[in-house]
Simulated assay, not measured.
Amino acid sequence: MAFGGAIGTAVRAFLAQAFPAVDGISWTILAINVVGAFCLGLLLDTLARRGPDVGRRRSLRLFVGTGVLGGFTTYSTLANDTARLLGDGRWAAGGGYALLSVVLGLAAVVAGLAVAGGTTERAAR
Score class of each variant (00 low, 15 high):
M1S: 08
A2W: 14
G5N: 01
A6D: 03
G8W: 03
A13C: 05
F14L: 15
L15N: 05
A18L: 08
P20H: 05
P20S: 00
V22D: 11
V22E: 13
D23R: 09
G24Q: 09
I25Y: 02
I25H: 04
W27M: 05
W27E: 06
W27P: 04
W27C: 01
L30Y: 12
A31C: 06
A31V: 11
N33C: 06
V35F: 10
V35D: 07
V35N: 02
G36L: 13
G36A: 13
G36V: 10
G36H: 11
L40M: 15
D45H: 10
D45Q: 12
L47G: 07
A48D: 13
A48W: 13
A48Q: 14
R49W: 07
R49V: 05
G51E: 06
D53Q: 07
G55F: 02
R57W: 07
L62D: 02
F63V: 02
G65S: 04
T66Q: 08
T66S: 05
T66N: 04
G70P: 07
F72G: 01
F72K: 04
T73K: 00
T73F: 05
Y75T: 01
S76V: 10
T77L: 15
T77I: 12
L78I: 11
L78D: 11
L78E: 12
A79C: 13
D81H: 09
D81V: 09
R84C: 12
L85F: 13
L85W: 15
L86D: 14
G89R: 09
R90M: 13
A92N: 10
A92M: 15
G94S: 09
Y97P: 03
L100V: 09
L100R: 05
S101T: 10
V102M: 10
V102C: 09
V102S: 09
V102T: 08
V103T: 08
L106D: 07
V109T: 08
V109A: 03
V110T: 09
A111G: 02
G112Y: 05
L113S: 01
G117P: 01
G117Y: 00
G117D: 06
G118I: 02
G118C: 04
G118F: 00
E121W: 12
A123Q: 01
A124Y: 05
R125I: 08
